[in-house]
Amino acid sequence: MKKITDAIISKTSEVILGKEQQIKLALACILAKGHLLIEDLPGMGKTTLAHTLAQVLGLQFQRVQFTSDLLPADVLGVSVYDRNAANFKFHPGPIFTNVLLADEINRATPKTQSALLEVMEEAQVTIDAVTYTLPQPFFVIATQNPSSQIGTFALPESQLDRFLMRITINYPDAASERKLLQSNGGREQLAKLSPVIDAKQLQTLQAACHDIHVSDALLDYLQAILKYTRQSAQFNAGLSPRAGLSLKQCAQAWAMLDGRDHVIPEDIQAILPSVAGHRLVSNSTLTGSVDNIAQLLKSVTV
């Protein structure tokens, strides 16, 4: 299993240069059956990452560019009257796919955002009293610009919570950037990329994730973290039970990517910034959430 995941990671790395950590996190998120939010400035390779992952995993891929005039029907689909058949016919929207890339999700109006988020939760679409099930596996990779940018509708906390992970990509290091500049950009390679696994295999991997052993000692540590976030004055509100569950699932996926059959505290520490970062609201606005998480990790005894 480790071989497969390693192959996925190295294949993706051929396109996204020098970002193995982010790739691993994104993959862990997918293995844990969660939706991924990539937050960064334009041009950092958010879209490329999403696209590459879909390609490598052998999944159907759809992309929607979110704008302020995008309507729910543009994402979900619409029923149109068919004059020949004399009835309404449903035209599925781009959401009927394995991987939906919701580009710049915070540019859309809250109405459209929430329509998407509802589907993310339920994995089905109901239009005109008819329920359409989405293909499996299904997950959303959303990208967003930092909310300080002009013309955005920031996702409220309740909706951020729908995303299992939020990651940032950051600037590449010098060597990777040089390599990137030497090539023609990722797009060209992306077209040539062959999938490593298919949808079925991905589902097997996802199922295997559940079998990664979580010991009592680890749950002690996990609970200590949850307790700390709830008791510390550092945070406005602590982590929810759902967040706790997410932490566990992601740690399991991370342990699997490391080729282990059990979760260790290091796994939790690795995924904690990505899983908890967007869920914790700091009390002081001066320190960033990354600092807060680091502080949190330092304060909880393994």
Partner: peptide, 9 residues
């Protein structure tokens, strides 16, 4: 060992 450090780290 720092108290927040995992055994492997």
């Amino acid at each position: 060992k720092l108290r927040h450090e995992g055994a492997i780290d």
